[in-house]
């Protein structure tokens, strides 16, 4: 077994070179490179975490803007509907006023016409009374030879006509 039979001759060389070469590995690889590799890995993890956080923030921002936009749209829709309602109410009012004016005009015309008709009828009635009184007086003079005063005849006719 060379490990034991060569022990006395080789132990110092083995220990020396092991210390030298492992020492070099420790300082060059262990202290020089491994921490940098870890640093790179950590930097990457941090970058990923930061990017994820940024994406999350952007998503929140987009959500907030969407909400704000929806609220604005709802508000504007409400305003528009209020405007439409106001315009409708105004139009209805104006129409009513005009209708009322036209109605009043028509009523006035009807009333005037009715008044004219009534006056005409009154006039006609008066005419009929006069003619009837003259006719009654005429008839009385021809049938009974009575001379009836015009006033009496008119009164009698009025009496008969109006019951």
């Amino acid at each position: 077994m060379p490990q034991i039979s060569q022990l006395a001759a080789t132990y110092s060389s083995q220990i020396f070179w092991m210390l030298v070469i492992f020492g070099a590995v420790f300082f060059l690889v262990g202290r020089g490179m491994a921490p940098k590799v870890l640093e790179t890995m950590e930097g990457r993890d941090q970058k990923i975490a930061a990017d994820l956080a940024a994406a999350e923030a952007a998503r929140h921002e987009a959500q907030a803007q969407d909400d704000a936009w929806k609220a604005a749209a709802a508000k504007q829709r409400g305003e528009a509907q209020a405007l439409i309602a106001a315009a409708k109410a105004e139009a209805a009012k104006a129409a009513e006023v005009r209708l009322a004016a036209a109605g009043a005009d028509a009523e006035a015309k009807v009333a005037e016409a009715e008044a004219r008709i009534a006056a005409a009828r009154q006039g006609a009635l008066a005419e009929i009374e006069t003619v009837a009184a003259e006719a009654a007086a005429d008839i009385a003079a021809r049938v009974a030879g009575l001379t009836v005063a015009a006033d009496a005849a008119r009164a009698a006719v009025k009496d008969v006509l109006h019951g």
Binding site: A9, T10, S12, S13, Q14, F16, W17, I21
Partner: peptide
């Protein structure tokens, strides 16, 4: 005084 030959092991 110690041998430090560069061996196949080294």
């Amino acid at each position: 005084g110690f041998n430090i030959a560069f061996t196949n092991s080294a």
